[in-house]
C-alpha cells in the first residue's frame, strides 16, 4: 500500500473532500497553542476550522484555546495521551485519527483540522497517516543553535516556525542568522520567523496555510514523513569509531 490511511479513509478521488489535517509539533512551550490561536484568528472568517489538542496530561491546551475564544468551543477537542505525547502522533495514532474523523463528521464540512502535539523533544513528528502536512515550532528563547541541531522536525517538516522573535534581543539571538541556519538545515524548505506581537509575521504564516490548503484541495500535496529520526551516530561495539545511518529505510525507531 502506498497511500496512507489519512488519504484513503474518507476519499478516493484526487480531489480530497475532507479537511486539510495540519499538525503542529515542537518542544514544550515554544508556542504551539499560541500559533494555533493566531491561525484561528487570522483564518476563521475564510475557513471552517476544528482543533484537536494533545496534552501530556489533562486537557490544559484545549482549555487555553477555548478561553482564547478563537473558535466555538465545541470545535476544540482534547485527546489525552497517557503521558506519552510522542506515541499518540507516531506509533499509535488511533486516538487522534478517530478524534479527527469524529470532528470532521460532527462539523461537516470542515476545511482545516489543526492537531496540536503535546510538547515533546526534537524527534517527535507526526505520522503521515494522521496529518497531511505539519508545522514544527521552535522559539528563539531555546537558543539560536537549536535550528542547526537538526532532527526530523526541524529538517523536514513542511514548515519550520521560529517563534517569539520579539524576544530575540533579550536572549542574545540573531534572528537572521537563526533563520539562515534553519534554511540550510532544511535544504531550502520553508522557514518563517514569527511573533504574535508582530502582526505582519502572523499574516505570512496565515498565507502559508492558505497556500497549503489550496494545494491540498487541488490534489497537489502528498503527505511527507519527516521521519522518526535524523541520520545519527552509533558508537560501535568496541567503543572505537562508529557509523552514521538514518532510519528512513523503514528500520524501526529505537532509543539510544
Amino acid at each position: 500500500m502506498t497511500t496512507t490511511d489519512a488519504t484513503t479513509s474518507t476519499t478516493t478521488s484526487a480531489q480530497p473532500r475532507r479537511a486539510l489535517r495540519l499538525g503542529v509539533a515542537g518542544p514544550v512551550g515554544t508556542g504551539k497553542s499560541s500559533t494555533i490561536a493566531s491561525l484561528c484568528r487570522a483564518l476563521a472568517d475564510e475557513f471552517r476550522i476544528g482543533v484537536i489538542t494533545n496534552d501530556i496530561y489533562t486537557d490544559e491546551d484545549a482549555r487555553f484555546l477555548r478561553a482564547e475564544g478563537v473558535l466555538p468551543e465545541e470545535r476544540i477537542r482534547a485527546v489525552e495521551t497517557g503521558a506519552c505525547p510522542h506515541t499518540a502522533i507516531r506509533d499509535d495514532v488511533t486516538m487522534n485519527l478517530l478524534a479527527v474523523e469524529d470532528l470532521e463528521r460532527d462539523f461537516d464540512p470542515l476545511d482545516i483540522v489543526l492537531v496540536e502535539s503535546g510538547g515533546d523533544n526534537l524527534t517527535a513528528t507526526f505520522s503521515p497517516s494522521l496529518v497531511d502536512a505539519q508545522l514544527f515550532v521552535l522559539d528563539v528563547a531555546g537558543g539560536g543553535d537549536v535550528a542547526r541541531k537538526g532532527g526530523p522536525g526541524i529538517g523536514r517538516a513542511d514548515l519550520l516556525v521560529v517563534n517569539k522573535i520579539d524576544l530575540a534581543p533579550y536572549v542574545d539571538v540573531d534572528v537572521e542568522q537563526m533563520l539562515a541556519d534553519a534554511t540550510d538545515a532544511r535544504e531550502g524548505r520553508a522557514v518563517l520567523g514569527v511573533s504574535r506581537k508582530q502582526p505582519e509575521t502572523v499574516e505570512v504564516l496565515g498565507q502559508w496555510v492558505r497556500d497549503m490548503h489550496s494545494t491540498f484541495r487541488e490534489g497537489g500535496h502528498t503527505p511527507q514523513d519527516p521521519g522518526p529520526m535524523a541520520p545519527h551516530f552509533h558508537a560501535d561495539e568496541s567503543g572505537e569509531g562508529g557509523y552514521v545511518h538514518s532510519h528512513d529505510d523503514g528500520e524501526p525507531a529505537h532509543q539510544h
Binding site: G82, C84, A88, D91, D92, V93, T94, M95, L98
Partner: peptide
Amino acid sequence: GRLPAGGYAHS
C-alpha cells in the same frame, strides 16, 4: 500492548 489501538493512555 504495542497494538496501535490507543490502549496505552489508560491505567
